[in-house]
Amino acid sequence: MTSGRMVIDDRFELVERLGSGGMGTVWRAYDLALHREVALKEVRPSSATDDDPGRAQMMRERVLREARALARLDHPNVVTIHHIVDAPAMAHPWIVMELVRGQSLQERLAQGPLAPAEAARLGRGILAALRTAHEAGICHRDVKPANVLLRPDGSPVLTDFGIAAMQDSPGLTANGDVVGSPEYIAPERLRGQEGNPASDLWSLGMLLYVAVEDRHPMRRETPLATLAAVLNGHLPPPVQAGSLTNVLNALLRPDPAARPPAAELDWMLGQAAESVSAPPSAPPSATPHTAPSPMPPPDMRHGSGTPPPRPGAFHGQFPPGP
């Protein structure tokens, strides 16, 4: 203890609790060795109970393996992991990460919706983070506004890969608990199809829908009713999406094979970000930590500028709502 505060590993002094969820608690902490503030994640998932040491050990091994994998990811839109604190005597591991100084996207959206072009620029940054993770064989599986932090300059940082670490097989646990947030989980995951990067793209599409529409189209009174709505697939068309409508049309398809590949999606988001609805003072290239102005995929550069149809792809409008 230092000044009445808890110190982890004789080095990291817990200062303030920043938030908590099913995968653990995040603290603002002070690194006594390097004299800097960091974020310290206490990885203590609610599913790994003390009366099941075998399951707790399995979860521990998975989260450490995942943390080591994420530590190799070097991208400004992915939260940086500095260190793992773990020892046999410790009840659970701690992950030391960069402290992102800014609010979460969830906190930002509580103040009102985003303009379509602004949401498109944000989406490109999140997509860049997902592409980096997917190329390393990691699916996030919990893309939602609470897991996107915004730096002071507005650039997004994708954080909390805890579900990717803690679960790597079923979409539902043996107890029937959803691995992921019901409102943002892709429908194919509810049917037991895991490991597809397109599932993260569905979640990104739902995040963007919520960001511009200021409402969640699948939210119901109970988690079970929300899951049923996701499986039912009746998505009301957006009314405020503007230049982002085509992106939402492409992402929020029940069939993961019908969603656009990442390169095409980046091009689409770039087009939406550069639309007339974008504020002239904030062009996409002026936003730090996002990809540069996109080049269209090779098969689009000499054509009409419209992505060619893919088998099973959806290029029309949302079906009528219920």
Score class of each variant (00 low, 15 high):
50 D>R: 15
50 D>I: 11
52 D>S: 12
53 P>T: 10
53 P>E: 02
54 G>R: 12
54 G>E: 15
56 A>I: 09
56 A>L: 14
57 Q>K: 11
57 Q>T: 12
57 Q>G: 12
58 M>H: 14
59 M>W: 09
59 M>P: 02
59 M>V: 09
59 M>R: 09
61 E>I: 07
62 R>P: 05
62 R>F: 05
62 R>Y: 07
64 L>I: 14
65 R>K: 15
67 A>Q: 08
67 A>H: 08
67 A>C: 09
69 A>H: 09
71 A>C: 04
73 L>M: 04
74 D>S: 15
76 P>M: 05
78 V>T: 05
78 V>W: 02
79 V>R: 14
79 V>C: 08
80 T>M: 08
80 T>F: 12
80 T>H: 15
82 H>K: 02
82 H>C: 12
83 H>N: 13
83 H>V: 13
85 V>H: 07
85 V>Y: 12
86 D>C: 03
87 A>F: 06
87 A>R: 13
88 P>V: 08
88 P>D: 02
88 P>L: 03
90 M>S: 14
91 A>G: 15
93 P>Q: 11
94 W>C: 06
94 W>E: 03
96 V>W: 05
96 V>Q: 00
97 M>A: 15
97 M>L: 06
97 M>D: 07
97 M>Y: 05
98 E>P: 03
98 E>I: 10
98 E>N: 13
100 V>C: 10
100 V>M: 00
100 V>G: 00
100 V>K: 00
100 V>E: 02
101 R>Y: 06
101 R>A: 10
103 Q>G: 07
104 S>H: 00
104 S>N: 01
105 L>M: 06
105 L>H: 02
107 E>W: 01
107 E>L: 01
108 R>H: 03
108 R>S: 08
109 L>M: 10
110 A>L: 07
110 A>K: 08
110 A>W: 11
111 Q>T: 07
113 P>V: 03
113 P>F: 08
114 L>I: 08
117 A>G: 12
118 E>S: 11
120 A>E: 11
122 L>R: 03
122 L>E: 04
124 R>Q: 13
124 R>A: 10
125 G>Y: 07
126 I>L: 02
126 I>V: 13
126 I>P: 02
127 L>I: 06
128 A>H: 09
129 A>Q: 01
130 L>M: 04
131 R>I: 15
132 T>Y: 10
133 A>K: 06
134 H>K: 12
134 H>I: 06
135 E>I: 07
135 E>N: 10
136 A>T: 09
136 A>M: 09
136 A>C: 05
139 C>W: 03
139 C>Y: 09
139 C>D: 02
142 D>I: 00
143 V>G: 00
143 V>T: 01
145 P>V: 05
146 A>C: 08
146 A>P: 03
148 V>E: 10
150 L>Y: 03
150 L>N: 05
150 L>D: 04
152 P>R: 14
